[in-house]
Computed example of a mutant assay.
Amino acid sequence: MANLRKDVHLLRHLVTFQSASRTANFTQAALELGISRVAVSRQIAELEEALGQKLFARNHRTVTLTQTGDAFAKNVNPALAAVAAALARQRADVSDPRISVTVTSAFATYWLMPRLIDFGALHPDIEINLVVSDRYIDIEAENIDVAVRYSPAAQTGAGWSPLFLETIFPVYSPRYAARTQLKSAQDLRRERLLFLSGRYRREARWEYWFSQRGLSSPEERSGVSVNTYINMLQAAIEGQGIALAGRPLVDTFLADGSLKSLATITPLQRDYYYLYQRPDHARACMFSNWVESQFREMPERPLIHHLYKK
């Protein structure tokens, strides 16, 4: 730090050097910087004098980096670009109170939306642009700051961290007219089941759940077929059948008694929720910290930190 304080008067000269070394033209550098060509030439000369080395070979109409100048540019120019990027990010954090958050429709409906009022009370200055999508949108292309994604594979890129390991189990409404005592998986084969249709993976369907217990699944025509997770849960709440659902999306309904689970049937671990936070974004960090705090307060939270090496 002492050396930097001693050379602080050269910082402007380094910016000039960056432009001149990139364009290989003092006149073009002057146009970029909004100063005269004479000023560019003078600042480069002062920088060379301070370093005790020639950075440019000056020809009649052109300039070229010397070997020393080329090595200096390779060290200095990326550092200045990093500083410029950091300043831009910081200005964006201050000037734009919005953050873009993407989640699935089910996660938005059953987990996030009921809790957003809490985040708003804690951070009234932050606006949430909620991007609800059941497809995996391009985070960079869509300029997403925070994402919660449900995936069977670990998300290991920059900004990703594990959040929650889902468990699934049968749920039904107290209004549902059961045909059996609902004590075992065998009993469920005789009940009216709600089947997910459409693009959902096999692990979300009754066929997979029964196969994990060594049983064949009833035919779909024996129950009710629904094409979205939201419709399935709504049908279960209305007592139309038994759904295969999971935590944390059904926690609210289990807590208020809208849905019940079968205590005698062990939940099945399925897929993972992962949290993405745009690196070096203050407001994204605040929102991500809040999401994690909400999950920490959940009972019986199956964390999955073992998936990542610290």
Rank of each mutant, 00 (worst) to 15 (best):
I117S: 13
R199P: 15
G214S: 07
R22E: 14
F295W: 01
G223P: 06
A243T: 11
Q269Y: 11
D256A: 11
E300M: 09
P97W: 04
L259M: 14
L87G: 09
V132L: 06
D251E: 07
A153C: 03
A88D: 05
R283L: 04
Q186Y: 06
A81R: 06
R91W: 11
F195V: 08
H305M: 00
H123V: 07
L193G: 08
A20Q: 05
G257S: 03
T64N: 15
D251N: 13
I117E: 09
F119P: 01
S21H: 09
R199M: 13
R42I: 12
P78S: 14
D280H: 02
A88F: 02
A158I: 09
G69Y: 01
T167R: 10
R22Y: 13
D271W: 03
R296L: 04
R296M: 05
L112G: 00
D93K: 03
A29E: 02
R149F: 13
T109Y: 03
S21W: 05
R270F: 02
Q18T: 12
T264P: 02
Y274R: 04
H306D: 10
P170V: 12
L194W: 06
T109A: 05
D96R: 03
T264N: 10
V83W: 02
T252N: 06
A45L: 12
S133D: 11
F253Y: 11
L188Q: 02
L215F: 03
E207L: 05
Y272C: 12
M286D: 00
E142K: 07
T66N: 04
V291A: 00
F56M: 08
D118A: 14
S217N: 04
E292T: 10
G223W: 06
R278F: 00
T156S: 10
K74E: 02
E297V: 07
I237G: 10
V94N: 12
G223M: 06
Y308C: 03
A284F: 00
T62K: 15
L11Y: 13
Y150L: 02
V101H: 01
V83G: 02
P302M: 01
N59S: 15
L10V: 14
K260Y: 09
A263N: 12
A282S: 10
S133L: 05
I44V: 15
G120N: 08
M1Y: 10
T266I: 14
Y272S: 12
I44A: 08
H13A: 15
L55Y: 01
A158D: 00
I265C: 08
P124R: 11
E238K: 13
A30V: 09
Y110S: 12
L4Y: 14
S225V: 15
A39M: 00
I44W: 02
A177M: 08
T16L: 14
V38D: 07
G52Y: 02
I242M: 09
W111P: 00
E140F: 11
L33A: 04
I137N: 01
V250W: 00
L47P: 06
E166L: 09
E220N: 12
E220R: 14
M232N: 13
A243H: 04
K6R: 14
R42A: 13
E46G: 15
Y136R: 12
H9L: 12
V131L: 12
E297R: 10
V171N: 06
A39R: 01
K54E: 05
G246C: 05
F119G: 02
R91C: 11
A50V: 11
P162V: 04
E292K: 06
D7H: 14
E166M: 08
R296P: 01
E219N: 10
